[in-house]
Design a protein around this nucleic acid. Structure first.
Lengths: 210, 210
DNA sequence: GTCTATATTGCGATAGAC
DNA sequence: GTCTATCGCAATATAGAC
């Protein structure tokens, strides 16, 4: 039985060229996220994807090339920050939009945080070209928002803009990072997200003192 | 030439039993932190430590056993949190002590954050027995501190204690997590630590609004 | 374009010498 | 208690068939 179908090759599981490539990316995303670059063999990965092991070299030039493609796709969502900044809202509204965006981003892509923390603490060769520019751009925009709020006398004059941005980003991201350790203590389901946004805005703007 | 010395065996580099074991732990800590459990071979590890590869099985029962010992040592520092809680100071003073403790801990052990984030996002079999109890204990104590402050009318009544604790912990830890991505933007040297503590206390207690 | 089969390298673990 | 040498296996990459 020939593998020609509509004059294209298809693989054993009936995928065409694009499906095969996409299946490799999605399977690699899940596995690399769950066990890290070195924790997954291309043998297992290709088997999980229902594809021959040689396809990884053919399409991505090897395991590291596949990882680099996964990383690129993961961090492409960081470009959305530009939309938040383009609106002509007040600094405070932009901060709320940022917090909401981070939460939605983690909900839509539960794997991103693994690549994010893994690259920040154990950078691969792709950190400088893929990860650093993506994170750097977000931080730069947030710093501008804080500086704008200070200039307009909305925020305190003695704030260090970069430290302030890191405090805000840390607050939100840590909620997701700590999930495994705090699932007995709080409900991490998306139903609480609205409350979370209000709560973090309250702490960040007014502090905890009564 | 015999390897007997004072009636004890010593290895090629003149280490005695304890030195050899400690050298394996310290080398493993650095390498596992830099490249993860799967990123390091016991071949390279033993060579770096100046010790025979078979010593890893002999003392730790294999690579995973060595990793587990490293993890245990790393998270043993979490027990220090009990000292902070035992003082009879106000909730606010305890929060400042906590922030200072986290910062000093990261300064004294730059590797901890790698194991911390790696275990939270890609847990090994040792997460439930070693990591979860250590983190859980810290969070539990911090939650009590916040609840105490609320009960004494020092903190706002509408705070969710667990979310508040995660906001605080995230703020401080993220400063260190983001080091690689922000070293062009701010000075991460210990000289700024005092300023950092004051700054984070300000944001956390009073918020950013002027 | 996709597959199978294989070449080559490196892994973790351990037997046995000292 | 420590070392060297080796076993068996799994890793990545690729040549060659279809």
């Amino acid at each position: 039985m020939s593998r020609y179908l509509n004059s294209y090759y298809v693989n054993k599981n009936g995928m065409d060229k694009n499906e095969l490539r996409n299946k490799l990316i999605s399977t690699a995303t899940r596995l690399f996220a769950e066990r890290g670059l070195n924790g997954v063999s291309i043998r297992e990965l290709s088997k999980s994807a229902g594809v021959s092991i040689s396809m990884i070299s053919y399409y991505f030039g090897g395991k590291e090339g596949l990882y680099s493609s996964v990383l690129q796709e993961q961090f492409s969502s960081f470009e959305q920050i530009d939309d938040i900044n383009k609106t002509d809202s007040e600094a405070l509204a932009k901060i709320e939009a940022y917090i909401r965006w981070i939460i939605v981003r983690h909900r839509n892509n539960p794997y991103l945080l693994r690549f994010y923390t893994s690259e920040l603490t154990n950078p691969t060769q792709f950190f400088p070209s893929i990860v650093q520019p993506a994170i750097g751009n977000v931080i730069q925009i947030l710093v501008q928002i804080i500086e704008d709020g200070i200039a307009k006398n909305q925020f305190r004059k003695d704030l260090n803009p970069v430290d302030t941005v890191l405090a805000m980003a840390g607050m939100v991201n840590y909620y997701f990072l700590s999930t495994l350790a705090t699932q007995e203590l709080i409900n991490h389901s998306p139903e609480r997200d609205q409350e979370l946004i209000r709560h973090y805005m309250d702490i960040f703007t007014k502090g905890i003192l009564s």
